[in-house]
Nucleic acid binder design. Sequence first.
DNA 1: CCCCAATTGTTTGTGTACCAATAAATTGAT
DNA 2: ATCAATTTATTGGTACACAAACAATTGGGG
Lengths: 160, 160
Amino acid sequence: MENTHQKIELLMRCIKALTNETSRNPSKYVCYKLSRVMRKVHRYYEGSLSQYGITPSQFYVLSAVWEKDGLKFKELAKSLEMDGSTLTSILDRLERLDLVERRNDPEDRRSLLVFLTEQAKQQISEMAHLAEKLDQEIKERFTEEEFATFERVLEKLSLD
Amino acid sequence: MENTHQKIELLMRCIKALTNETSRNPSKYVCYKLSRVMRKVHRYYEGSLSQYGITPSQFYVLSAVWEKDGLKFKELAKSLEMDGSTLTSILDRLERLDLVERRNDPEDRRSLLVFLTEQAKQQISEMAHLAEKLDQEIKERFTEEEFATFERVLEKLSLD
DNA sequence: CCCCAATTGTTTGTGTACCAATAAATTGAT
DNA sequence: ATCAATTTATTGGTACACAAACAATTGGGG
């Protein structure tokens, strides 16, 4: 009986293939594949970065401020292509962790400047080193050309 | 003066390149690239699916139930590789939209079975058709081989 | 100089996403 | 048959992500 069920399943799959009926499984959609992989890779980074008490998104923000200390809130959001309200909440947490500091912009009272704290400056390069190692471990699983194509497609998709 | 500033920027980039100092910009990390592209593609789907009043994630759940109507909650979560608590909240919304129905499993009182409503059955193939069109528009931007490599890498990353 | 439109960052509300803790039901070992 | 361990779905808590509404500020046209 169990065997019969399996045969029926197989037959159904054959019928679908022969009639060219498209699968209903969501795993065929690009968007679904992307989100599944993104979540997986995100958790992979998260597992390592948690030793510093931060999340991947918080790490990206720290890196961007590290690249240009004291940049404007607006510039930061733009460079991360991140919604302002999302950045506000991430900065709230980073400020609570004493890793980042908001200061008033002397030239425009609407604007904020974002700085790393001393503590963050001491830790960030170690964090970055860790993240590079994680990246390396991912890349090792593919040929250089394969991964280059992958990144090129990602790059092209990220330009609107 | 502005010109001087640009020259300094350029010089700094040269120094970084010559000393092999790695960039601090987060856009070099695989995880960041993935999340940026995922968000972009997600918004792209969202814009179209919103005409049905649903989100991409809700669409994936509907598709999976469409593929196998009346499957167990647990199976559904597993096939979507989704945390159970996430699925609970998505099913709550889909039930409120009258697109999905939870029923008790007669064979195990801990378990739930998930069904599409009549309304959902009438709409889902149109939604799927739309999603396929969106996918097609993305794929058109690349050569077949290029995109095949991209999907192969995604596939491999989603395992383990 | 004044007013109105645009800009800046925050708040609020909704929707994922996941972990830990929970309650209910089932299973298995004795 | 009974009790402990396991399984199942939900709840509660935290963290993104984004749109819309908001307050403070700036800037330009009259």
